[in-house]
């Protein structure tokens, strides 16, 4: 095999890994949109909030310590423990479930039957609230997230592939980050288990029922409010997974919430209501932007990854507005 081919292959693989992350965030959007027709602007902030909470809990940080110290003149900062990663993850999950409950109780419940744009505005408010609340709770400095996921080049893969190139060429093997490999495995496991859950359990069927028809769901005894709590909790769980992976890679900081913006073009490609669409859309954008940067980028000054996804989405909007998997939209007259 020629080194060029192998480099391209490496780029594609790295693109797929990046795409997995986009897919995860887009998945959170799709879940909530399907069940309630709400475009949840706060999905990205939820990932940030989950990551911050995880770091805070793991390092035994006292929540609101700045506030407490300012008000009472104390000097508390930490409980002085470090929790094992899985305990911290479980506790974070509980926080996200509680969050889902509170969102339903204090926001959604009061906005039933409102226009989509109103619900959207409510989630913008929610996003800013959570961002500020997260800072207040855990502090706004950049945090290091370490849940023991291995990082750095996979030497095994590098050695394994080093011999693939033709004899005598300068090729030293493929570079793939272990973290990306783990993220991919976790994302696959997550999607598979969500799919199984929604196919073969009572609650899973209820989730799909609500996505299809609210009235009919009510008529068979399904409480929409309960389902909304469950959906937001699942979206919170997905956000947490995305937050952990992204946070481990580039630190827990505000920019993490911006990955949500990358999910937008994914949704345009995949369609707002299709779970397979979110996954495939994420992968296409991941691979597309890496390949584009690798092949065309150098000719036009690089940094194409900043805009490629959005332009691709624009192209899709013009030529295939229903997304990859959507039915063709035919105007009713």
């Amino acid at each position: 095999m020629s080194p060029e081919f192998l480099y391209t292959l490496e780029v594609i693989l790295n693109g797929l890994m990046a795409g997995v992350m986009y897919s995860l965030v887009a998945l959170g959007f799709v879940l909530i949109f399907k069940a309630s027709g709400i475009f949840n602007y706060a999905q990205g902030v939820m990932a940030l909030f989950a990551a911050m909470t995880l770091v805070g809990i793991q390092n035994g940080q006292v929540p609101f310590s700045h506030l407490i110290n300012a008000v009472f003149g104390t000097h508390i900062h930490g409980f002085g423990w470090t929790l094992p990663a899985f305990v911290a993850i479980l506790l974070t999950l509980l926080v996200m479930i509680l969050f889902a409950y509170l969102v339903e109780r204090f926001v959604l419940k009061h906005l039933v039957n409102q226009d989509p744009i109103i619900l959207f505005m409510a989630t913008i408010g929610l996003a800013y609230f959570m961002e500020g609340f997260g800072d207040l709770m855990w502090g706004s400095e950049i945090k290091v997230l370490d849940v023991g996921v291995p990082q750095g080049a996979s030497f095994w893969l590098e050695d394994f592939t080093a011999g693939w190139a033709a004899e005598g060429s300068e090729y030293y093997g493929m570079y793939i980050d272990k973290l990306d490999l783990v993220a991919t495995v976790v994302a696959i496991a997550l999607v598979v288990s969500l799919t199984l859950f929604s196919q073969y359990t009572k609650t899973g069927r209820a989730l799909r029922a609500v996505a299809d028809d609210h009235q009919a769901a009510l008529s068979v005894g399904i409480s929409l409010r309960k389902i909304w709590v469950i959906v937001w909790a699942i979206a919170g769980f997905v956000a947490m997974v995305a937050g952990i992976m992204w946070g481990a890679k580039s630190g827990v900081q505000f920019s993490l919430s911006l990955i949500a913006l990358k999910a937008l073009p994914v949704l345009i490609l995949g369609g707002f209501t299709s779970i397979p669409g979110a996954i495939v859309g994420g992968l296409i954008i991941g691979v597309g932007e890496k390949l584009f940067e690798y092949s065309i980028g150098p000719m036009i000054g690089g940094a194409t990854e900043n805009w490629f996804a959005y332009v691709l989405a624009l192209v899709f909007l013009v030529f295939r507005p229903q997304g990859l998997f959507g039915e063709k939209i035919i105007e009713r007259v």
Binding site: R205, R208, D212, D213, A216, V220
Partner: peptide, 16 residues
């Protein structure tokens, strides 16, 4: 009906 589901799943949802 729940359009995305099979006949079986629709009726199964009726058992909720």
């Amino acid at each position: 009906l729940f359009k995305g589901m099979s006949t079986l799943d629709n009726i199964m949802t009726g058992r909720f």
